[in-house]
Amino acid sequence: MSESRQRKSLVWIIGVVGIGVIAAMIIVKIWFAATVFLPSDTATAEVIEPLDPEEQIVRDMVAPVVPGTPVMPAGLPALNPNDYSRDLARFVPIELGMARYAAQDELLLYYNSDAGSGSKVSSTERTVDGDMIFVIRRSGLKDDSLAAEETYARFTDDVLVGFGSRIQCRRGDKANEWTTDLCP
């Protein structure tokens, strides 16, 4: 057999093997998607009724955590910007004038930066007087003095016009109360 013919045979063999590998990968991907993401028995598949929007927010924001650790409240009380501090928010990587989604992304990245530590991050947004209010909270912190932190951001026409932070300390004369003072 000539050298040219051997090369052609080798190219054909490699091509056929490559096509076989690709076909096998596609079959495995289809099988995986069908077995993992689709219910195996549609007769016993649980049908989940949609919740009303307020109930869904409460369900999304409140999850079991360590006793004494604050999570988003079940009710959505009126937000008072005087309960938050711009000075305390100096650690949060947002600035006035930022676009809404950029600011929310920065807040989510900042608050989820230690996600492996077991802390719980929850957030909510609502419209107040035509402005969008976004509140994000991290609780269950492994810090011996800081129990939770929360930041609000107010957007007018999708532009950040106000924000502030507050914290909850584990000890001191304001233990387990929201404050804008640094924890002892």
Rank of each mutant, 00 (worst) to 15 (best):
T44I: 13
L38T: 13
L182R: 15
R7E: 02
I14L: 12
V17G: 00
A63M: 15
R59Q: 06
V65L: 13
E55S: 13
P93T: 07
D143Y: 10
V128Q: 05
R90D: 12
E125D: 04
A103I: 00
A45D: 15
V135K: 05
G172R: 11
D52N: 14
N82V: 14
M25Q: 01
P50K: 04
W178H: 04
R170E: 15
I94P: 00
Y101M: 10
A74T: 14
G18H: 02
I136Q: 00
Q104S: 06
F155D: 00
E149L: 05
R7S: 04
D41G: 02
R137E: 07
I94D: 01
E49D: 03
V36H: 12
G18N: 09
G116W: 13
D60P: 03
L76V: 15
I13V: 08
V65K: 05
V21G: 00
V159Q: 03
I133M: 14
M25V: 07
S165L: 07
L88I: 11
L79A: 14
T42K: 12
I26D: 13
L96P: 01
L108W: 04
G140P: 08
F32R: 14
E177V: 07
W31H: 13
I48M: 11
E150I: 04
P64E: 15
K142I: 05
K29M: 02
A103P: 03
E3P: 05
G140N: 07
F91C: 00
D105H: 08
Q168I: 15
D52Y: 08
V36R: 10
S40V: 02
S113P: 04
S119G: 11
D173G: 08
S122E: 09
A63N: 06
G18V: 01
R100M: 03
L76D: 09
S119H: 01
S139N: 14
N112C: 05
P50F: 09
Q6V: 09
T69Y: 06
P184R: 08
T44S: 10
F163G: 02
E95R: 12
R166K: 14
L160D: 00
G97S: 06
E3F: 05
A102R: 04
K29T: 10
G164H: 09
R138I: 05
R137I: 12
V28L: 11
P77I: 01
I22L: 13
V21T: 05
I22T: 09
V128S: 14
S165T: 06
V17N: 09
K120M: 15
V161C: 01
P53A: 00
Q6T: 11
G140V: 12
K142M: 06
R154A: 01
